[in-house]
Amino acid sequence: MDIILIEELTIMAVIGVYDWEQNRLQKLILNLEMGWENQIITDNNDSKTYLNYEKVSESVLSVVSCKRFSLIENVAEAVAERLISQFQLPWIRIKVSKPGAVPQALSVGVIIERKCQKE
């Protein structure tokens, strides 16, 4: 299995546990690593066999911008669930960072890994 990357996807979102945070947009930065079988692409140039970065990015933007979140952990879970389902990903690692959340740090964040739960 190979890994497809999307790095530093920046999204403005309503996120935070404090009331004042729920009334303004804040920057989130996502890094995605997605398991994908690239061997299919080299054997078959059909565009339906590759993972479309633009469609993945649009899906992430849709999930994050259309909902209010309390925690970055919730953002990571929602994105993982959507992408695994929508693109039939066997595996995903997502890093969600919230720059400026703590004055003494560049950013805070969470990294999760999820696998497709086939029944």
Results as ranks from 00 to 15, higher is better:
residue 1 M to P: 12
residue 2 D to G: 12
residue 2 D to N: 14
residue 3 I to K: 15
residue 3 I to F: 07
residue 4 I to S: 14
residue 5 L to K: 15
residue 5 L to F: 13
residue 7 E to R: 15
residue 10 T to V: 09
residue 11 I to L: 11
residue 11 I to Q: 04
residue 11 I to S: 00
residue 13 A to L: 02
residue 13 A to E: 04
residue 14 V to S: 01
residue 16 G to F: 05
residue 16 G to I: 02
residue 16 G to A: 01
residue 17 V to H: 00
residue 19 D to Y: 01
residue 20 W to Q: 06
residue 21 E to C: 05
residue 21 E to S: 00
residue 23 N to T: 03
residue 23 N to I: 01
residue 24 R to M: 09
residue 25 L to D: 05
residue 27 K to W: 00
residue 29 I to H: 06
residue 29 I to D: 02
residue 32 L to V: 11
residue 33 E to L: 11
residue 33 E to H: 13
residue 34 M to I: 00
residue 34 M to D: 04
residue 37 E to Q: 04
residue 37 E to D: 14
residue 37 E to L: 14
residue 38 N to K: 12
residue 40 I to A: 15
residue 42 T to D: 14
residue 42 T to I: 10
residue 43 D to Q: 11
residue 45 N to D: 15
residue 45 N to C: 08
residue 50 Y to K: 13
residue 52 N to K: 04
residue 52 N to F: 09
residue 54 E to T: 15
residue 55 K to M: 12
residue 56 V to L: 08
residue 57 S to P: 03
residue 58 E to F: 04
residue 58 E to C: 02
residue 58 E to Y: 01
residue 60 V to N: 03
residue 61 L to F: 03
residue 61 L to H: 01
residue 61 L to I: 14
residue 63 V to K: 02
residue 64 V to Y: 02
residue 65 S to F: 01
residue 65 S to L: 02
residue 67 K to E: 14
residue 67 K to Y: 05
residue 68 R to G: 03
residue 72 I to H: 00
residue 72 I to Y: 05
residue 75 V to W: 05
residue 75 V to Q: 04
residue 76 A to P: 04
residue 78 A to Q: 11
residue 78 A to T: 09
residue 85 S to V: 01
residue 86 Q to V: 07
residue 86 Q to L: 13
residue 86 Q to R: 11
residue 87 F to Y: 04
residue 88 Q to T: 09
residue 89 L to N: 13
residue 89 L to F: 04
residue 90 P to A: 02
residue 91 W to D: 14
residue 91 W to C: 12
residue 92 I to T: 15
residue 92 I to A: 09
residue 93 R to C: 08
residue 94 I to N: 08
residue 95 K to T: 14
residue 98 K to V: 00
residue 98 K to N: 07
residue 98 K to D: 04
residue 100 G to H: 09
residue 104 Q to G: 06
residue 106 L to I: 12
residue 107 S to Y: 15
residue 107 S to C: 11
residue 109 G to T: 01
residue 109 G to S: 03
residue 111 I to R: 02
residue 113 E to W: 07
residue 114 R to F: 08
residue 115 K to C: 09
residue 115 K to R: 12
residue 116 C to W: 07
residue 116 C to D: 10
residue 118 K to G: 03
